[in-house]
């Protein structure tokens, strides 16, 4: 078994005992997910093996390139929405020119990695959860194990690599496009010269903002893969089970992204 069976709560009538056992079961799930991905992380050097390269390349393609269309639209519109909203407020004080700084700083630090994370959870994460879940219920995972092919190396590791490599790049892509979107609004609606918009953006934005954002994206990549692969590999009960694990992949990833995002922001910006 790639993963041990879930902790079984003994049938007990005592409510508190039940809670205790449920807590243990929860901890087991968390620990299992973390260990699973840590194993995959330690296996990453294997991706350079000749026969893994194709799979890793495909996962990079699937995670990165295939997400570009939806990310483009989302990033562009998020940038525009943010520029419109801050623009309205800033215009009250005649500070429209600061919209560049506002959009850039917010996108680089927070919204870029966050929006990218959410989009990737909804597209790639759910797809991983569903795919591994289907493989689990149709015994494909068992088949791999019997062939002595470690599912962690064969399935989890390439996806982990793809997510952790692509998330920062996709976040950078989102950043650039959303700042561009904000620039369009600044120019067309707020009457800020493009050069002034960029100047202002560069006045406020720092490399620290950019790199903390990209680091966050890296962590989000790990988190998304952790939740999706664990949920997928612990799927039980046919099509309904696959549906459940897809759903919980998205829900749990959202929550974990929010919480880790907050912790990282707190860590870097106090």
């Amino acid at each position: 078994m790639a993963l041990n069976d879930p902790y079984e709560c003994p049938a007990c009538t005592n409510l508190f005992a039940q809670w205790g056992h449920n807590t243990l079961a929860f901890f087991q799930q968390v620990g299992q997910a973390i260990l699973l991905n840590s194993r995959a992380l330690f296996m990453t050097p294997l991706m350079f093996r000749k026969r893994m390269r194709t799979e890793v390349a495909y996962q990079l393609f699937y995670t990165g390139i295939k997400s570009l269309p939806v990310l483009s639209v989302v990033a562009f519109f998020v940038g525009m929405i943010f520029a419109v909203q801050t623009g309205i407020e800033l215009a009250r004080f005649g500070q429209e020119v600061n919209v560049g700084g506002a959009v850039t700083v917010v996108m680089l630090r927070e919204m870029g990695p966050f929006m990218t994370g959410l989009i990737i959870v909804a597209s790639v994460g759910s797809s991983i959860g569903a795919q591994l879940g289907t493989m689990k219920v149709s015994e494909e995972i068992s088949a791999l194990e019997i062939m002595s092919i470690d599912p962690v190396r064969f399935l989890v590791m390439p996806r982990l690599v793809a997510l952790m490599v692509m998330m920062p790049f996709l976040t950078l892509y989102t950043d650039v496009l959303s700042i561009f979107g904000g620039g369009v609004i600044a120019t067309v609606q707020l009457g800020v010269e493009p050069a002034a918009y960029l100047d202002n953006a560069l006045l406020y934005a720092e490399n620290k903002d950019l790199y903390t954002g990209l680091f966050k994206a890296l962590v989000f990549g790990f988190v998304i893969n952790m939740v999706a692969c664990h949920q997928g590999l612990t799927t039980k009960g046919g099509a309904v089970g696959v549906g459940k694990s897809t759903r919980s992949t998205v829900v749990i990833s959202f929550l974990v992204i929010l919480i880790t995002g907050f912790i990282l922001t707190k860590f870097f910006y106090g």
């Binding site: 495909y58 990165g64 790049f169």
Partner: peptide, 10 residues
């Protein structure tokens, strides 16, 4: 093709 596209993007 996959490898080329991924490489170009990165």
């Amino acid at each position: 093709t996959t490898e080329i596209v991924v490489g170009a993007f990165m």
